[in-house]
Design a protein around this nucleic acid. Structure first.
Lengths: 207, 207
DNA sequence: TAGATTGTTAATCGATTAACAATC
DNA sequence: TAGATTGTTAATCGATTAACAATC
């Protein structure tokens, strides 16, 4: 399968969540235009995305919700589970950790890290907080491939330096610091301030 | 000035943050390629964005950091301050509230809202938490134009219904629920799960 | 001047949408 | 069949990049 467009990958993840909701509500079939409406996009967009992943219905009676979930999962989920760590257990780190626990079958939060001795050893759900000094050791032993970075601005660069050395594969960056990482690490920015400023700008310019 | 591309608006916000860092470090001039490197994009991109906002240097000695900050601010900031509320003071809401306080001169967090009587009346910094029942009253009296939605999934739809009735202008949605809002409200999705799944996907496919 | 940098046009790339044939 | 829906191509739109003239 060739690489999917980034936007398609994003939407597939969103579709799937909606589809799970449909299942819960006992809905077993869904039309492209229904799925589209739920995401405020067009039906063509939905069908195009579904085309990309090579799925199609024989019938013209809408997509089978369960089947579609499975097909999407086969595409965007990892075969093996993927282990995730939260680096920095401040307000945001705690929120995210709590948020993720038990949410994703294939993406497991397996460790959190912090500097603060008071936090080290504490648990979020089942997940233990380790000293950042043990980052490399734990990342390797627990086979962690993705790090969620929620440390304070001033320690972001150090944290990334340490992360790069552990052989981590992807970083989701919640700090507002511009990070430079080697090309073989996938870096996704998750920027609250920018999002808010964007909303502010468009609020000002919509009339 | 005609409407800027969305991506340009996003980047301007990011540039500005970097430029403030430069000022702190005593750097008063910056080349397009320097700014580009800090954001992992190309120098052409930077110059194009700057072209869009109609700024240019006479010299070929790089952009004046302070001037550029001012020009960007004139574009993306609101003239008057814009008031922001956080709806839902759970882990995430608290984190975001703490995060924003004092950070943005032109974007003020002026209220938080929750259902829980224990939280109502409490303060995050200077900012008071109000009952969600008083949403409309407070939004109007405090002239709030942007809502940051951090309520639990199950109450998201109700919260949005209430928000729409207050005449809010923009919503930054942190929940994983697909919201349907009237066209005159700018809705920005801020989706952690999707971001993480996106990272997972590309981690799996980069080699 | 030569080299570096900026500003801008034109070309390219990627994502969305319009249009429509095929199918139930 | 007629109407609704899907799947797909071609056209359009928007964003990025290549190329290069202009300027210090």
């Amino acid at each position: 399968m060739k690489k999917l467009p980034e936007k398609t990958v994003e939407r597939l993840s969103e579709y799937r969540r909606t589809l799970y909701q449909c299942l819960d509500e006992g809905k077993t079939k869904i039309y492209s235009h229904e799925l589209a409406d739920l995401h405020n996009i067009t039906a063509v967009q939905v069908r195009r995305d579904i085309m990309f992943i090579g799925y199609s219905t024989r019938q013209r009676k809408g997509y089978d919700v369960e089947e579609l979930i499975n097909v999407i999962s086969k595409i965007i989920d990892t075969r093996e589970e993927m282990n995730v760590a939260v680096i920095g257990l401040g307000n945001l780190g705690k929120a995210i950790s709590t948020y993720f626990i038990g949410k994703r079958a294939k993406l497991n939060l397996v460790a959190t890290f912090d500097l603060d001795p008071k936090k080290i050893g504490s648990k979020t759900g089942e997940v233990e907080c380790y000293s950042i000094d043990r980052l490399r050791e734990i990342v390797v032993s627990k086979n962690i491939s993705i790090a969620i970075l929620t440390v304070p601005t001033y320690s972001a660069k150090d944290a990334v330096k340490a992360l790069v050395q552990t052989g981590i594969k992807g970083i989701l960056n919640f700090t507002t610091v511009n990070l430079n990482v080697p090309k073989d690490i996938y870096l996704e920015e998750y920027d609250m301030i920018t999002s808010l400023e964007k909303v502010a700008y468009f609020v000002k310019h919509i009339k």
